[in-house]
Design a protein around this nucleic acid. Structure first.
Lengths: 333, 333
DNA sequence: GAACGCTCTGTGAACGCTCCCAGAAACCGC
DNA sequence: GCGGTTTCTGGGAGCGTTCACAGAGCGTTC
């Protein structure tokens, strides 16, 4: 099949030096003469040597790879643009530290086992866990193995691992207050993803901002942050109370769906109904009018979580980090 | 740090058998007595053994991992829902064959080198290459190394590797003809991504369908399949010829942008202008009216490309596959 | 009862690398 | 010139597997 690959011994022979010296050059260690270093480099180029990673991993007992565990149903995986940004952000931090990012996707029970084996198999030195649910078994497995890891977000009932997150409660409270500040009288919410911390917290923030004006009849709940949830949720809210004049949607995708439903029902946005979202994803600028929303630094969440894992790997202490959010006020409310 | 992991020898000792027998049990080979098998299984559970993959890879000279190489700018990575579907489709096929999918993202030159090293380092037995450009260096590197690989799509000027693709020319021709069939007189196109085969071929199909009616002034070109490209492109077409009454957008995202531009310009869709897209992505159902478009089986493309790589790994011949597309006729034209 | 074939088990030899120790060579200060 | 330190190199040992081979045990056939 493929030609036999050159080994460190071939390089040593070609350079007229020993294995040990070649290894020192390859790993950039001290105590190599300039002369030897040049000879080795020439020999490497000559024989086309590339280090065999499996052999290295075997002896060093590490892999220089970090897993990004995504536990998310099919449909949502790429409808939610945050996941892509988190992925790229984590990739950036790891790439800088010369680690390889390995994406592990769980979308069935079989995947769940395969991923757990992968974790245990020593193919990965650490993990970034994205979009875990409350009491997620894979998160428990990670903690159980004792693998250095960090969450993006921090679901309840999960092991005591560091995380990179935003304060969803406070951010939701802030944008709801702002919406109320435009003089709306009947404000509802389309809540989503109550099986994870972000969904719960956004609802809690909404409730906090509403205070006495909170009316459970004006809150509808959907399992996922989707456009479809927003569309249906808004129709349901309009049926429940045609006088509704403000809506907080749990994400931009949800808000976009809600806006379509409002416009089809003949309501003007923002004149008749003000609407605000959450994420400041690409949805926000695509809506007409553009969405008022909360900007969350998705890429930075990924980068930060990756850095938390790297810190653990270097034996440094790593503690949770809460990143700032900003209310982006545009035309939808 | 972490406790020392149990090895195959620990299992052998616990079971009172030899390394070889344990290995045979772990790999499900023949010639193991039921008695021995049970003893080994009990011992594995007792000592908590998990196979060390690095050691295995070292001796077998394979990794049971397949790379999915995505070469795409930041912004587009998750705006294009096809990529997510391809990823999941490939994951499914590989997961079934007990291979692990490793996602390799190239979005800078440094990434490009790191990925090339990763390929060469023996960490991967094969590769699925998504969204390569014409004459993509990473594709050349893959061919150079002699790694079994397959493309999704098949850019010009790339090495002679099998691919899973759709017939973009024919599909574009078909939907353009259908658009013409609604009686449109002035039909234009918003072309995109002419640096890759899909972009080129969709333009070629459009031109073929238009025949003598083809007017280069009614074709605008943008580098990426984005909403923004559609929005701007439509405005430009309207300026060039206000009597335009039909548009073929190179993707659904582009079509969605174009539709917004038309509606802002006070044109009714489909009464004043008919518009068709390409992909049948989640964009299509989100538009009002819903988009007429070409359904391309993105998940199946990923699955098929993965299978082509697996076939090569098993020494079977693998030849290009062209998958079927279907015109989905909805309300936008 | 010898010869053969099948099933099953144990063991030495790799795989390609890093780590560590021993020792050579060079440099320093007194 | 001598002991001590620092710089540099070589090579044995070992990481945890799989693989190939040797050989034991047992049943079948002539």
């Amino acid at each position: 099949m493929r030609a036999r690959r050159a080994t460190i011994n071939d390089v040593a022979d070609a350079a007229g030096l020993s294995r040990g010296t070649v290894s020192r050059v390859v790993n950039g260690e001290k105590y190599v003469s300039a002369e030897a270093r040049m000879a080795v480099e020439a020999a490497i180029a000559q024989v086309g040597y590339v280090r065999n990673t499996a052999a290295r991993n075997l002896v060093t007992q590490e892999s220089r790879a970090i897993g990004l565990i995504i536990h998310e149903p099919h449909s949502l995986l790429f409808e939610d643009p945050n996941i892509g940004s988190i992925l790229l952000g984590a990739n950036e931090a790891l790439s800088k530290a010369d680690y390889q990012l390995v994406t592990l996707i769980i979308d069935s029970d079989r995947d769940s086992h395969r991923v757990a084996d992968h974790l245990r198999g020593g193919l990965i030195d650490g993990a970034v866990i994205v979009s875990a649910r409350a009491s997620d078994p894979i998160a428990a497995a990670v903690a159980d193995i004792g693998l250095p890891a960090a969450f993006v977000g921090h679901p309840d009932g999960t092991p005591d691992l560091p995380y990179a997150a935003i304060d969803n409660v406070e951010a939701a409270r802030a944008i709801t207050s702002r919406l109320l500040g435009t003089g709306r009288q009947r404000v509802g919410m389309i809540a989503s993803a109550l099986d994870r911390d972000s969904g719960q917290d956004r609802l809690a923030g909404f409730r906090a901002a509403m205070g006495e004006r909170y009316d459970p009849r004006l809150v509808v709940e959907y399992p996922l942050y989707t456009y479809a949830a927003g569309f249906e949720g808004m129709q349901k809210l309009l049926r429940r109370d045609p006088s509704i004049d403000g809506v907080f949607a749990a994400s931009d995708a949800v808000a976009a769906g809600a806006m379509t439903a409002l416009q089809e029902a003949g309501r003007r946005v923002p004149e008749d109904v003000g609407i605000v979202g959450f994420d400041d994803s690409s949805w926000a600028l695509r809506c007409r009018p553009q969405l008022s929303t909360v900007r969350q630094p998705a890429g930075l969440l990924g980068t930060t979580a990756a850095e938390l894992v790297l810190a653990q790997l270097m034996g440094l202490p790593s503690s949770p980090r809460v990143l700032e959010t900003v209310v982006m006020w545009r035309g939808s409310a």
